[in-house]
């Protein structure tokens, strides 16, 4: 093995792992012990690698990221009701029954299906968070309805009263699980950095496309990443309204 071959191998050496015991590095390490030039290069290389790694590891996740991840998952978790405080006498009386029931009810629940409201909501929110493009840019709702009608995409949607005052910016037609989703885009009124045009979105899909569609017009609120969402059903459709912000802001548009 030449010095340069050894150097090529040692480029991949990670001092923070068990690479020193890895036979793939053994010959090159032996050469580095014998050759002064290679040894000095290797020592400096290891120091540099350690320094770079430390800087990579200093990137800290946002303080609330873990909470956000867990809160997004929370609505699907079971409430372990038998762990809630109960009067001691009652607990004693139903202990056996309670334990049996707990074992039954505390089994892992099924994961959300691909056609659940949570799955749908997550998908559409993440679409606008990262990857959406509007098919039509327009500030005229009639034009938007006409475009959606031409694409058979829920042109007969109904808007919450609060949304009527928000300026519209356009629309798009998405698909989810093979079903069309109408996306109507608005501005909430907050300043937006260019080139962003919208931060308020209404999504409309057929009610039968969502396995656990909301039962009626009452709103289900859920924060998904940076967007607050409200979901409800009306007629044959399921609506999700999403805004970059919190529930208080969202309620202004309902």
């Amino acid at each position: 093995m030449t010095i340069h071959e050894a150097r090529e191998i040692l480029m991949l050496f990670r001092p923070w792992t068990a690479d020193a015991d890895n036979p793939a590095f053994a010959e090159a390490l032996a050469l580095a012990r014998e050759d002064a030039g290679l040894r000095i290069w290797f020592e400096r290389h290891c120091a540099t690698q350690q320094e770079i790694r430390e800087q990579f590891q200093r990137v800290a996740a946002p303080a609330d990221l873990r909470r956000r991840i867990l809160s997004e998952h929370a609505p699907r978790q079971k409430v372990i009701w038998w762990l809630q405080p109960v009067p001691l006498a009652a607990a004693a009386a139903v202990l056996l029954l309670g334990v049996l029931t707990a074992v039954w009810f505390n089994r892992p629940g099924p994961p959300p299906t691909e056609t659940s409201l949570a799955a749908y909501r997550s998908r559409v929110v993440r679409t606008v968070l990262r990857t959406y493009t509007m098919d039509l840019e327009a500030n005229d709702l009639a034009q938007i309805r006409s475009f959606l009608a031409a694409h058979s995409a829920h042109a007969d949607y109904s808007m919450p009263d609060g949304l009527r005052h928000a300026p519209t910016t356009g629309c798009g037609v998405l698909t989810w699980q093979g079903k069309k989703v109408a996306m109507i885009c608005f501005r909430s009124g907050k300043p937006l950095p260019p080139p962003e045009m919208s931060d308020l979105f209404l999504f409309v899909i057929d009610r039968d496309a969502v396995a656990d569609a909301p039962g009626g017009a009452s709103r289900q609120f859920q924060q998904v990443s940076r967007l607050a969402t409200a979901s409800w059903s009306a007629g044959s459709k399921v609506y999700v309204l999403a805004v970059e912000g919190d529930e208080a802001l969202l309620r202004k548009f309902l």
């Binding site: 991840i69 994961p111 997550s122």
Partner: peptide, 25 residues
């Protein structure tokens, strides 16, 4: 973050990853 270099995108990618884990893990 090393891929996107923005806190928002990195946080969202991480959340999305755990969402997929919750549904398909």
């Amino acid at each position: 973050f090393s891929l996107t270099r923005t806190e928002a995108d990195a946080g969202d990618l991480t959340q999305q990853t755990f969402y997929v884990w919750a549904t398909k893990g």
